[in-house]
């Protein structure tokens, strides 16, 4: 299906490429010890957030967990600001104070970047509550992993959203593993989407390796919510190619499984679909890919040349307006 809110597929493919090339570059810089802390990569899952972006408006609220680089880039945060944040520089999207797990971009309606598993799911319910309170037709997109669905805050938030009929889409990015623990070892249900039923919330499943499937399922859900506020739950089945974080060799899964998903790569698939339909030439794709690589490389240079946050700003953001206690 298509709706007037849907965005150009070639543009969406180019965003997926930007995410991948940015993260490949981030991975390299992390290994070169230019980036501190934790660093969780999204590579392989690009169709999930981009499918969601394609089905929604730029002013819809978006909030996610700690694997958040892609969500910011998808929302229009510049690669420069994203890379600078990894470097802890003042030009970063959180002024170097948040780091990899805490990306924020208010202007682009990116509400974080939240690193306590499941703790942001009630926040999403609150954002959706605010939209309903003000009579807006905004939808809140709340992303989280399969690991979050066994956390109490997740269950409380789903119940509250169901109870108050809040316009929020709970998007479970099921990449089969919560760090090193597989869904079978963590979750008593056979399929995650059934969690929604317990809260009388409509549940959907989408193929996270297929951009069009994610977009079309979400477009349908969004359409219904705009007409009549209510929550929905979408389990999007996907896979991360890399480990949980940079320090994880991912020895808990097989090479065969990884290869199976790599063969089903979301970027390769959308490229093939567009090429087959005469909407994209190989030359155009190559140019887009080169553009993404150049942007990622330039972001490294930008980050390296940026300033550290000034020491005298240490207390500046503890309280609003720089108040002290």
């Amino acid at each position: 299906m298509s709706s007037p809110e849907q965005r150009d597929e070639v543009e969406m493919l180019s965003l997926m490429l930007l995410i991948r090339r940015f993260e490949e570059r981030a991975s390299q810089q992390y290994q070169a010890q230019k980036i501190g802390g934790f660093c969780h990569l999204y590579i392989g899952q690009e169709a999930v957030v981009i499918g969601a972006i394609a089905a929604t408006r730029p002013d819809d609220y978006l909030i996610t967990a700690y694997r958040d680089h892609a969500h910011a880039l998808a929302r229009g945060t510049s690669a420069d600001a994203c890379m600078a944040e990894l470097y802890g520089k003042v030009t970063g999207c959180s002024r170097g104070l948040g780091g990899s797990m805490h990306y924020f971009d208010k202007a682009n309606h990116m509400y974080g970047g939240h690193a306590i598993v499941g703790a942001h799911v009630p926040l999403a319910a609150g954002m959706a509550f605010a939209a309903k309170y003000r009579g807006e037709d905004r939808v809140t997109l709340c992303f989280f992993g399969d690991g979050a669905i066994n956390q109490g805050s997740f269950h409380e938030a789903l119940n509250l959203a169901g109870l108050y009929k809040l316009p929020v889409i709970f998007i479970c990015e099921n990449n089969l593993f919560a760090m090193g623990t597989s869904v079978e070892r963590s979750t008593s249900l056979k399929q995650i989407v059934d969690r929604a039923e317990g809260y009388d919330i409509a549940g959907y499943v989408a193929d996270g390796m297929n951009f069009r499937d994610v977009r079309d399922k979400l477009a349908e859900v969004v359409d219904g919510i705009r007409k009549d506020p209510h929550p929905a739950f979408v389990e999007i089945r996907t896979y991360r190619y890399r480990g949980h974080s940079m320090s994880d060799p991912a020895s808990y899964r097989t090479k065969d499984q990884l290869e199976k998903f790599r063969m089903d790569d979301p970027i390769t698939r959308l490229r093939a679909q567009l090429t087959r339909e005469g909407k994209l030439t190989n030359e155009q794709f190559d140019a887009m890919d080169k553009g993404a690589k150049d942007t990622a490389l330039a972001s490294v240079k930008f980050a390296e040349q940026s300033e550290e946050p000034p020491l005298e700003d240490l207390y500046k953001y503890t309280y609003a307006n720089g108040e002290s206690t």
Binding site: P122, L123, G126, A128, S153, N159
Partner: peptide
């Protein structure tokens, strides 16, 4: 936890 978190989210917007 749920309604305290809802408050934080509503305050963000």
């Amino acid at each position: 936890n749920g309604f305290a978190g809802m408050g934080v989210g509503a305050a963000m917007v």
